[in-house]
Amino acid sequence: RRRLMEEVEEAGLVVEGSNGAARREDKEEERELEARLEQVGALVGANLAERLSRDRPPLATTLDVLKFVCKDFWTAIWEKQVDGLRTNHRGVYVLTDQAFKPLARIATSEGSAMTARVAKLHLPHSVGLLRGALGRLGVNATVVAESAIAQGAKGASETAST
């Protein structure tokens, strides 16, 4: 039975059942952890953005801020620029990075479902970084991260909407 559960889990399905309560507790804990990590990231992002933008003329528009984040900010942190910046011109910006460093070496021996879970925990910090930086530069945004690591592709995109 356990073997079966493991297989089901590996296939990416959620197993609900006898250990449902424990699972919910885990979820709760995970959420708290993610919130903390994001807060840590936000603080860092804000301060770093301030330091980086100190000696340059002010950034006038939201697009300027986004460009600054994609180029200077990203380079300062991950040694490369963002690979793509798209927008729907209604306040949603999508930043893509095809070789996102924090996820570059993620691997587990417990199957792709587990890997995806572990990978997910690495995202809130970066989300915070971006949100913090944007916030300090005057763009209050909601930032969401998506990653396709579970499917084997290593890339991440972050959506910022104002």
Binding site: V40, G41, V44, R51, A76, I77, E79
Partner: peptide
């Protein structure tokens, strides 16, 4: 890794 990122992240962690 960027030392500023490292230092600041550690700082933010301690604050948290």
């Amino acid at each position: 890794v960027s030392s500023e990122l490292f230092t600041m992240t550690y700082g933010a962690l301690v604050i948290q």
